[in-house]
């Protein structure tokens, strides 16, 4: 699990900073658009209080702006599945502890477990979910390869695998099988489709490096 998946430094909001920023929001300032900045400012001022109550946020999901009302503890996963209208239920809840990768989304291109990422941490970030992979009816090369290679059975883990591997292949379409395995090492498939997942990712990568897709 990378640091960013734990919502650590790489996500731009430190744990300390988040608590400080929480104080700003609770103090009555509308927390829209600059949660992270306010958090850092609050930290500099030594202001320590906790965030509570309802917070209005704007999330950028699959290129759309989504206004949502969350609580400080609301996870990005819950915001996507329960707060966004219409609900984006492609991202799945399975373990709710960051163990299984079913809730993986891309945040500024990096895979994160949305079940251990707070919605407030996602503000100002570009979020991509499984619903944002296809271009209209045109599947992404990886989605297409998943279908061709039968890289899914019940399908419940599939969105998470697609997001982890999209994150990998968009950076390095020529990823080796070891890199592919390592990119989805945090994803659990209980039906046991792994061999087909690796084959699909390999073939999608080949297509992508020939310029056959984004």
């Amino acid at each position: 699990m990378s640091q960013s998946q734990n919502g650590g430094e790489a996500s731009g909001v430190t744990r300390r900073g988040f608590l400080k920023g929480a104080g700003v929001a609770a103090g009555g300032l509308a927390a829209t658009g600059t949660m992270a900045g306010e958090a850092l400012a609050a930290q500099a001022e030594g202001d320590v209080t906790r965030l509570s109550g309802k917070i209005k946020l704007e999330l950028r999901v699959n290129g759309d702006k989504q206004k949502v009302e969350v609580e400080p503890r609301t996870t990005l996963l819950s915001a996507l599945r329960h707060r966004v209208e219409p609900a984006l239920t492609g991202t799945k809840i399975v373990c709710d502890h960051g163990n299984c990768g079913a809730c993986t989304v891309l945040m500024d291109g990096e895979p994160v477990c949305s079940c251990i990422t707070l919605a407030v941490q996602a503000e100002g970030r570009e979020i991509r979910t499984v619903e944002g992979l296809a271009d209209g009816d045109r599947l992404s090369p990886l989605q297409e390869a998943f279908v061709e290679h039968d890289a899914m059975m019940c399908g419940f883990c599939t969105p998470g695998f697609l997001m982890s591997l999209t994150g990998c292949l968009e950076k390095n379409p020529q990823a080796s099988e070891t890199e592919i395995r390592s990119a989805c090492a945090g994803n659990t498939c209980r039906c046991g489709t792994y061999p087909n997942v690796f084959a699909a990712a390999k073939s999608a990568g080949e297509r992508m490096s020939k310029g056959g897709g984004k």
């Binding site: 239920t89 992979l133 599947l139 279908v147």
Partner: peptide
Amino acid sequence: HPRVDGPAKVTGKARYAHDIR
């Protein structure tokens, strides 16, 4: 043959009981 519901499963359109709103 690839499964016919593959496209629904790779786009998040497949709705499971969990996903009913």
